[in-house]
Amino acid sequence: MKNIIIGQFIPGTSFLYKMDPRSKIIALMLLMVSTFILSSVSHILIMLGVVLVILKIGGIPVTRIARGLKPIMILLLFTFTFQIIFIKTGNLVFDTDLTLTYITLPIILLIVIFWYFTKRYTRFKFLYLLITVFGILTLLSLYNPGSIISSSHLEIYQDGLEGAFFIMIRLIIIVTLSTILTLTTKPTDLNLGLEKILKPLGIIRINAEEIAMIISIALRYIPTLLDEANKIMLAQASRGVDFSEGKFKDKIMQIISLLVPMFIISFKRSDDLANAMEARSFVPGKRRTRLHTLSWHNIDTSVIVFCVLVLASVITVRIML
């Protein structure tokens, strides 16, 4: 649990680090909107190119971004599969019969078991899973001796393929853009930037400063609470709770023995914090000065201009074509 790092900020010196958080947030929104307006595969590939160029100039390693994409792998795979299976317009690209027979069934089971026991030995688990699934599909379509259990039809159409590809690229671009923001901005700066951007909401009685304060306190207390959780787990483990083993019914009891003290401690902490803030004359909504102030540079202006140009050209393309 000690390895969890909040925010993924990695220190650096490129232009992305010199930018003001406000301009970064605005730029992110402009580029995201542009990505959503685009509607054809070739255009979104150009957009992907732009993002890659930003990565290159910003000096952010692509491997780091790939790691950020890992959690949404499953989502990507799902959308990809569903797009391919359910969209049935355009030209037929690929057509095959998938036949399950009494001979292929045990072979498939063997492959799955083999995959299950060997997956821990490879570093590229996801790739290994894909290869296995692809292997099984190939087997189903090409090799079908013996009596047939069931048979189905796999058709892939051009529109489905393009749609799947398009949505995948779009998701990747959006995740990459937001990862760039969190990689190059400290949580505190991000928070300050958000606060400034949300300031106009004061007109409709939404206090941006309070929201920013809530976010920063929440961020601040995540590591503390993780630490507390760890201590409680140790204390309960010494009373015979085994968080890794045990029956389902016991597991629920074990989780309760962790959750109840967590709640108690969190409430106590927030009480103490409120008192400490009040003791230092914190009044919600009052005007406050800051230790760190944001400053807008030329680079911010040029980046915003660039992003506005991107958005303008995207809109033009969309209207013209």
């Binding site: 201590k231 204390a235 010494s238 003290p261 401690i265």
Partner: peptide, 17 residues
């Protein structure tokens, strides 16, 4: 852990019932 009983420093870490 039954044979070596360990009492932690802060009791609020373990009371929950």
């Amino acid at each position: 852990r039954q044979r070596v009983g360990l009492v932690f420093q802060f009791p609020e870490y373990q009371l929950f019932e």
